[in-house]
């Protein structure tokens, strides 16, 4: 089957799904109180955009972008360091493993206690989600560096700094992209849970308020926004990842 044909099929299926959802809710089979309906969600989205949803999106985006930037910067640098200095890596790795395995969501109440209900606690939540997969993959990338390339550099008399900049850094790029792929999803979870728990603005905060007043339509708007954003980011990263795949040795 051609990809184009697949796309048409996906489109049709979506239409059928939305159509039957709308129909079933109008017939009263699906109570709108619980399940809303596509048109009600659309109307609610319109109302929300006119009443401050842009601000929620802006706040969530800022939290996400700042948290991710921090996670990528610290994660990549630390990953390089831990991969390069083998002893240091061996000492620190167990701690990272434990932190990675622990349900970091459990830390959120603490983060809110430490950093307040503003964006700082949410940035920290994104960071905690995204940081570990990046450190892990980058560290692995440096460790599994192709020996023949290191020998090549050494045969020309390269010093350690040259080995690091000309071989280690470029050969970890595909690993950074692979780590980023996982990190994006985790970071998004961090934003939403942080905002659901305690916040002053944001998509998660909007959903929490809607939930408290049984406004199902609004909750669906938030859900769709988040899903769409996550999908978009994953696709973008996949595209970049593909570009760097040939850098794998």
């Amino acid at each position: 089957m051609s990809p184009r044909y697949n796309k048409i099929l996906v489109f049709l299926l979506t239409l059928i799904f939305l159509g039957s959802w709308e129909l079933l809710s109008r017939k009263g089979v699906l109570p709108t109180f619980f399940f809303s309906s596509p048109l009600r969600i659309l109307k609610s989205a319109q109302w929300l955009f006119e009443h401050g949803l842009w601000n929620d999106i802006r706040v969530s985006l800022i939290e996400f972008v700042l948290g991710m930037s921090l996670a990528v910067t610290v994660g990549v640098l630390l990953g390089w360091g831990l991969g390069w200095y083998i002893t240091l890596g061996a000492v620190v790795e167990p701690f990272i493993t434990v932190m990675n395995a622990a349900p970091r969501v459990a830390l959120l109440p603490l983060l809110i206690l430490w950093l307040g209900i503003g964006i700082e606690s949410k940035i920290a939540a994104v960071f905690l989600g995204a940081f570990f997969p990046i450190v892990f993959t980058v560290m692995k990338g440096v460790r599994t560096m192709e020996n023949s390339l290191l020998e090549l550099a050494r045969s020309f008399g390269a010093n350690d700094l040259q080995l690091f900049t000309t071989i280690a850094i470029p050969s970890t790029v595909p690993y950074i992209m692979a780590g980023l792929q996982i990190a994006v999803g985790r970071g998004l979870v961090g934003v939403v849970i942080g905002e659901l728990l305690a916040a002053q603005a944001g998509i998660g905060y909007m959903m929490a308020r809607a939930s408290a007043s049984f406004q199902t339509d609004k909750m669906f708007v938030g859900l769709i926004l988040l899903a769409g954003f996550g999908y978009f980011l994953t696709e973008v990263i996949k595209m970049i990842e593909k570009k760097f795949e040939s850098w794998r040795v």
Binding site: E151, S155, F156, G157, P170, V173
Partner: peptide, 29 residues
């Protein structure tokens, strides 16, 4: 830096073009 080696496996840097692979040794030096 007075010796250079031609390896059994080509050991080229996949992120560099042919030209920049050839210049690699010079850049190191």
């Amino acid at each position: 830096r007075n010796k250079a080696m031609v390896f059994q496996s080509a050991s080229l840097l996949p992120w560099r073009t042919v030209l920049r692979n050839v210049t690699y040794g010079l850049e190191i030096q």
